[in-house]
């Protein structure tokens, strides 16, 4: 290799020619929106994580407090409560909050374009003018996967449908902003409409799923009609209940 590095002869002079790089990066993240009363909300959260253990592992979340006014101490307790459950809060979104002090995760502003994921959307009033921009600014893209999804794999596709040409193994998961279509056996977990889309659906040719979820509402294998096992099914949300119906 040709030497194009700056000459480093003088010991005292630090090399300063390489600029520090900054660039803007945009990430999609899960946002948890707690609701009063908090004890009840934590109980529901525990119920959810019990059915989907490990869902939050390695997935830091933003705490959405836009609809909930708490002082710094209460926010601290909330963050600790989540930390006890293995949920790491890396930022807080709160409309009216000033600086929260050095002990709490930093405030985030300017969330936009994507409707904030809400675990229990039905309990919240319909969107008002608080939501800055409509969801349609996000381009809907379909992700097509032409191979089986193996145990332990996690496919996260927040905007649009996921189509799998193959089976989805036990212990794997597909998380889609839109619908999930599986041309094979679903043995793992499928989450449709995770960004807040109650019209998303899950389709599979053979249902051996561990869990089916649409827009935060879910059903585990134990809660499914035994008659739906091993068949081609679709799962959809109607009136806050997941329905699993046979396609054949």
């Amino acid at each position: 290799m040709n030497s194009i590095a700056p000459v480093q002869n003088a010991q005292s002079e630090p090399v300063q020619r390489k600029p520090i790089r900054f660039n803007a990066r945009s990430f999609v993240t899960f946002a948890l929106a707690p609701e009063a009363p908090l004890t009840e909300w934590f109980a529901r959260l525990d119920q959810w994580t019990e059915n989907s253990p490990g869902f939050f592992a390695g997935r830091p979340v933003v705490l959405n407090l836009n609809h909930f006014t708490l002082d710094a101490e209460e926010i601290g307790d909330l963050v600790d409560g989540l930390a006890d459950r293995g949920i790491r809060v890396f930022a807080i979104e709160a409309k009216d909050a000033e600086d929260l002090g050095p002990d709490l995760p930093p405030l985030l502003t300017g969330a936009r374009a994507i409707p904030v994921e809400e675990p229990q959307p039905a309990h919240r009033p319909a969107n008002t003018n608080e939501q800055a921009e409509p969801a349609r600014t996000v381009e809907q893209k379909t992700l097509i996967i032409e191979a089986p999804i193996r145990s332990g794999q996690s496919i996260f596709h927040p905007h649009g449908d996921v189509i799998v040409l193959g089976s989805v193994g036990s212990g794997s998961e597909i998380i889609a902003g839109g619908s999930v279509h599986i041309y094979g056996t679903l043995r793992g977990r499928a989450f449709a409409g995770v960004m807040g889309n109650p019209n998303a659906r899950i389709f599979c040719q053979k249902n051996e799923a561990e869990l089916l979820a649409v827009d935060g509402w879910y059903r585990t294998a134990d809660d499914m009609e035994p008659s739906s096992r091993g068949r081609a099914i679709q799962a959809f949300l109607d009136n806050e209940v997941i329905w699993v119906s046979a396609l054949d």
Partner: peptide
């Protein structure tokens, strides 16, 4: 079988 599936991944 499930562990094998994981290994294939």
């Amino acid at each position: 079988v499930r562990d094998s599936d994981r290994i294939i991944g």
